[in-house]
Design a protein around this nucleic acid. Sequence first.
DNA 1: AGTAAATTTGTGCACGTACACGAGTGTTGT
DNA 2: ACAACACTCGTGTACGTGCACAAATTTACT
Lengths: 355, 355
Amino acid sequence: MAKQIKIKEIAKMAGVSAGTVDRIIHNRGHVSPESQAAVEQALAETGYKYNLHTSAISLKREYSLIITIPTAVEGEYWGFVQKGIEHALEEYSDIAIDHSYAFYNQFDIFSCKSAFERIPDMKPSAVLIGATFASETRILCRRLEDAGIPYAFVDSVIEDTHPSVSYSSDQNICGRIVGRLLNLMTPRDSELAIFSTRRIGNERALNSMARMTGLHAYFKGIKSRRVIKESKVSVIEPATSRKDILDFLQKNPDVKGIAVLNSRGYILADTLAKNGINDVKVVTFDLTVNNMRCIQDGTISAIIGQRPELQGFHAVKAMLRILLYNIKEKDAHHLMPTDIIIKENLPVYKEIFID
Amino acid sequence: MAKQIKIKEIAKMAGVSAGTVDRIIHNRGHVSPESQAAVEQALAETGYKYNLHTSAISLKREYSLIITIPTAVEGEYWGFVQKGIEHALEEYSDIAIDHSYAFYNQFDIFSCKSAFERIPDMKPSAVLIGATFASETRILCRRLEDAGIPYAFVDSVIEDTHPSVSYSSDQNICGRIVGRLLNLMTPRDSELAIFSTRRIGNERALNSMARMTGLHAYFKGIKSRRVIKESKVSVIEPATSRKDILDFLQKNPDVKGIAVLNSRGYILADTLAKNGINDVKVVTFDLTVNNMRCIQDGTISAIIGQRPELQGFHAVKAMLRILLYNIKEKDAHHLMPTDIIIKENLPVYKEIFID
DNA sequence: AGTAAATTTGTGCACGTACACGAGTGTTGT
DNA sequence: ACAACACTCGTGTACGTGCACAAATTTACT
């Protein structure tokens, strides 16, 4: 095992004291250019890695982290994101991190606005954003930037912002996967349909749009001539959408595969099952408890998973790296793996392997 | 954030010194029954969690870890396992862990025997085993148990042994997935074939067997009448198997889907491509560089991934938990997720997210 | 009872880093 | 030339735990 280089050794190499090295590592300033250069060279030469363990115990600053995401419900997408966040915070529980959540209703822009408005005034050390409404998010980011507060994105990235780091999935790829799966699972001469969420200025809808683009791109890529109907049914609440779903299927009897481009595939699946329709394959997003149940039943054929826990987990860890050590990565945008979950491998996806 | 309870506070509660608490936590003995009881009660009341960070820095013992796995080649299965192992060791690099590898040839039982024989004499603190040959492994485990040396399994678990922990995939599930995928990707009236590795007393072959069982189970479960040929072609070396492969296909022209139940699917795929056969779908195992290339080419349709890095990573972490803190888990056998990788999601699987 | 031995218990130092404080150096203005 | 100031830099202490060693207590035996 390679011996760890310690701050004192760096100090000796650079001909300065340990305190100076510390100042440089933490970007605290008050260091002469010569010392800076000498130490940086020593750091580079030795490939110094700060010892997180000891640095944690001697840390005296207190950090406050605000996490603003759509209301996290256990067993649903944002619930898993929160789980990952909590997991990371627990791992760093010996650092004084005061964290608080600012939840908002992902279908109500006003709840988002009022949640976002208060954040900069609370003067947090950093903010974790699960964005839904692009314009509101941009305003928040702008204010955070002005205040010098770093922020990170989970789940999606908003254009024209400058997050320290982001963890999300490539929604276009997700859409392509859905395309391929539906194409495989349905007869060549049958039609396909897309159910998605439509809301203007809603980033969730932007996710859906990217997925849709990917799906169409897949069929274009394989030069398929299959008919793909875009339903205007908004699959959000079971009660309201049930009738719309049945209407749609009655009008489009050749549709044998449906992509639900949000996480509400179970609503469609349940409706189909209740009405004895079992020759229509459903593919949807996110390993929520309801969707998992449908996979097990066989009413949903495949789920695209995006590792929400891992996104929350890594976002927090990255934020702490930035807060504690000002470590900036080259490429701050991380794409998470896109998992394909079917009945057979569902059980082994239930145990979550973060950290 | 809940305040951490420290050893000193426990000591005060129990009316003893910190040293005594330390002795009890580490089972060092030399403690009176009264102190023992008092401290244990205090520990239970407060739900004390040792601080891994600080304990690591003050740790003075040296640990030695032997990792005995099939020769790790970069970009192949065991190479990824090793990557995960190294990653975990790096995370704990402030603990004095002396680790060494005892590689063996997974196709040569004598190399395995001679690698295993030496291990107990080296008196390691713990051993990590990537098992291939069941009987040899059993002998090793037996000797380790007699010497009181804990050991862990990665990739596969051998019957009649008592590992402290294991990280592996459910091979039966893997086989079922392959079954479903091939069934989806090929015409209903076409035949399927299985290529696998056959070696008596070879656990790699046992893995193959479990996969085969799972595959057949899938087709039985859906009451399919498809013909599944079991080829005796051993897909190990490109040169030797090429002719056999072509012979097989010539004799079985209706085979349109082939499951290669080891990680050498690329050999079959390359052979098919070179001979202009592009209507036979191939599914195989493990995200090796060669298989990834074939996925990208489209010559392999799907790969089953088993998260080898994560297996190595977690196995080491679990071993260290056991060595350092004697933490025994309830259920020591962990099943890793079984990923389905196709052309579309291959890019996002390339970045590995361990820890 | 008195002493030696055995056992339990407390104390102090070390680990590597963070950060406050004060010492040291240089610069500017009168 | 000297004071006042700005800035850089080194020293010392604290963090929570592991572990060696010494101190205190109990036990055993003459």
